[in-house]
Design a protein around this nucleic acid. Structure first.
Lengths: 315, 315
DNA sequence: CCTTGCCACAACCAAAGGTTGTTCCAGTAG
DNA sequence: CTACTGGAACAACCTTTGGTTGTGGCAAGG
């Protein structure tokens, strides 16, 4: 299938005849005739009935037409996604099920007119480099990790604190609790196979362990969140941490429990990062939106590492 | 943009290297290299960073990738829409805002696994011919019009009665009524510029006029339903009929009123038409679904023309 | 330092896809 | 009845695209 042929097909369908479509496309009528013939040959159906006064869509052609239009739309969007200058706003949300992802969904609902490309960049260094190069517009990250200062041309603002919850299977000792304190977690095995040394979230959990003496195991290969949930559901002695806003796609009958943690509640601090000189108009809209959602912040009873940036009052 | 190049791009992104992608696509590595280079040249961005151990997506490449996948998906669906044998179920709903269209939306929600192509065929003759030729699987129509019998190989069953409502602007004499009787409508001008002589709905309205002595004007060119609604909203002396299930896309503040009609309520009878020998598996599902929705039928207090087929009890 | 694995470049060739010129066909006017 | 008009298909030709084979460059690893 050739997109040029599809474009020709739509032009002929709109014009009602080959000649006019040919003028529109700036080719000869014979070229249009050839393109349509080739498309019909590839698809194995006749798309137009040719008459001496033009071309009329067959039933097959009518069925194909909306798909053809959609195809051209999607192609245009694809090209636009990498068009220099006026491309969609590119925002990195680390992973597709976290709080940042939810924020971007809400932002999209609030501003459906803004074209977005949500991306998943694993490494913070990559994200920062991409922001500095202009290839990325913004990233949600935890910033302030000791020894890894942000370059001066990168600005950041803390936008959402995500409370961590304990996730257990039905057989876990704490499965029945409506909430647990951090002190109650000492001695329980908490398994987080996704943690990669050197990342900002590794630093976060290192601090959490150091502060409260928890037992967090990052051992074993990470087979993905499905495997993690599977294991947690089936292993009574195992639990894991999970962001409060993290969406699980999981059959309800596995009996996984989400248990709030208190005294204090560990919260994961998400900041928005962007380049000082980024001119993308939608970036300002996003920042304004996030400033609005973050207005009702109250840090009482929560914990974050020392190195996390302070909340600032919106101007 | 060339779909083959996009396909190649996705293959390379998945494989992580040109060579493996080349094997998958059954071409040489050099061909893959050329295709990617051409795609990059067309888009104006670099999609991969080439290393001696493979190819890695750039940020632009990562942004482009989901659009590329979507493009291939849509292309596949487009091809499938005209594929002989296992193409989607094609159902004609006459116009996109009527009761039949709503039924098909509900059917799609109930059976999202069934691929559908909803079509809009103006003429009944066209629809019947298409059904007989196998190019169309089903059509919603009012059947039984005198002098235009269905061919014996076309089966039909009445599936939904759509009550007609009076649509008026805020200044109309009946605008404040909670409901009106057919008798109250005599003398009021009812404007239906969409009616085309010779169609089954023209026959319906002819019978309606003959039965109750209404004043229905079909004069003037039809500039589309937007223009119709515009005129009705602004003209106190004008009203029109509209199906109860017809969805209006209209700013709420224009003050259009939908007023139920009683004593009796004129209902427009939609039947499903299909070919006796049509083997499409989804057609049976659709018929079963419609038989289910039509179960709660009660014709008391309604009117349809004499020639409309009777409701049959589902087997 | 050499081997290995992978990608880019060059030369070549077949085929796709464009152009011009022409034919065919069905309404329509004379 | 015939000639004309407008529109699509066919034929011949040519350019350009996109494939192949052959070769060179480059970084990682033994």
């Amino acid at each position: 299938m050739d997109l040029e042929a599809v474009r020709t097909f739509v032009a002929v369908a709109d014009a009602g005849q080959f000649q006019e479509a040919a003028v529109e496309l700036a080719v000869t009528q014979q070229a249009v005739s050839k393109r349509i013939a080739a498309l019909e040959r590839n698809l194995g159906v006749r798309l137009f009935t040719r008459t001496p006064r033009g071309a009329q869509l067959t039933i097959d052609g009518q069925a194909f037409l909306p798909h053809a239009r959609e195809l051209l739309r999607v192609a245009d969007r694809a090209v636009a996604s990498v068009r220099a200058g006026r491309r969609p706003l590119r925002v990195d949300v680390i992973n597709s099920r976290g709080a940042a992802s939810g924020l971007m969904r809400d932002f999209h609902r609030a501003h459906p007119e803004i074209d977005l490309d949500v991306m998943l960049l694993f490494e913070m260094d990559t994200a920062v480099a991409a922001i500095r190069s202009g290839a990325l517009d913004a990233s949600f990250r935890a910033v302030g990790v000791p020894g890894r200062p942000l370059p001066p041309d990168i600005e950041s603002v803390r936008v959402v604190d995500e409370p961590l919850q304990l996730l257990t299977g039905p057989g876990h000792a704490l499965a029945g609790a409506r909430s647990v304190t951090v002190a109650q977690l000492t001695g329980h095995r908490i398994w987080m196979p996704g943690i990669v040394p050197g990342t900002e979230w590794a630093a976060y959990y290192d601090d959490l362990v150091a502060e409260f003496g928890l037992t967090i195991e990052a051992t074993g290969p990470n087979f993905g969140s499905d495997a993690l949930l599977d294991t947690v559901a089936d292993t009574p002695a195992l639990a894991t941490f999970m962001g409060e806003h993290t969406r699980l796609v999981w059959p309800a009958d596995h009996g996984l429990r989400r248990i709030p943690v208190t005294d204090p509640t560990p919260v994961y601090p998400h900041s928005l990062l962007w380049h000082r000189d980024n001119p993308h108009p939608a970036l300002a809209t996003l920042r304004a939106y996030l400033a609005g959602t973050a207005a009702d912040h109250d840090g009482t009873g929560t914990w974050t590492p020392d190195w996390t940036p302070h909340w600032t009052t919106a101007p």
